[in-house]
Write a protein that binds this DNA or RNA. Structure first.
Lengths: 122, 122
DNA sequence: CGGCGATATGACATTTAATACATAACGAAC
DNA sequence: GTTCGTTATGTATTAAATGTCATATCGCCG
């Protein structure tokens, strides 16, 4: 029984994209994008955290850091009331999300093309 | 005396590119590319490590891991002898370096363009 | 007013990754 | 066979990211 011996191991191309402050500190990358998107969908930070399977503590810390680095609020936060409270995205946050999404789509295309070219050269 | 108040904080776009095995483990990224390039230039792993300001231990571990994940040798290693020993790149490694370099140039262009488009949308 | 559910935050524990330290093996040259 | 610089590798220490726990605040509503 013959066994196929691959002439080379498969190599994959990966990339990570993120927005940062001028000091290099990360503001928005994939995870925080997801967090904001989920807040937008659910209207609540705790619900978003639960959906994503991360602790409220971490979600809150991430959100706070992003806002601090950006210098403006990404969410309008309310606490108390019948529902306990809620968090909704600001207009700026929504705009940022849309721009980031478009950025990501564009980069995905570029990476795919670069990967094809790369394999030809290998 | 008036003070200029920026309407928005500057946001930078960053990306990281790397080759991985199918299991997702990283093989080659910027640092390891530099390491291989330096080995090629110096003909020695320890000299390369010194040049890059990292410990020999780390350089050796990085190289070993890359080779293990790729399934083939990136360097020909010799120890002992008058000079103590040396490390030189294999043909496959040289080819890999060239392909990675081209990949990076291509991606840099793509990122620059994506960043311009991104800022317009913001 | 007391309970509920969400935001808000500090303190501590744990897990993971990077780095440092130590030590062995090798082989040509002298 | 001793010296020297390099490859080779295990172990230990540190540092950073992440998770856990506890506790407080808020404000509608029954």
């Amino acid at each position: 029984m013959a066994r196929i011996k691959p002439s080379h191991i498969e190599v994959l191309l990966n990339y990570k994209l993120w927005l940062s402050s001028v000091t290099g500190e990360g503001i928005i990358e994939e995870d925080r994008y997801e967090l904001l998107r989920e807040i937008h969908k659910k209207g609540s930070l705790s619900a978003a955290a639960k959906e994503l399977g991360i602790s409220y503590r971490k979600a809150w810390g991430d959100l706070k850091k992003a806002e601090q680095l950006l210098g403006y609020e990404l969410t309008v936060k309310k606490r108390g009331g019948a529902s306990g409270g809620c968090s909704t995205l600001t207009d700026k946050a929504i705009k940022l999300l849309e721009a980031y999404k478009a950025l990501h789509v564009q980069m995905d295309d570029a990476v795919e093309k670069a990967y094809r070219d790369f394999k030809k050269k290998l």
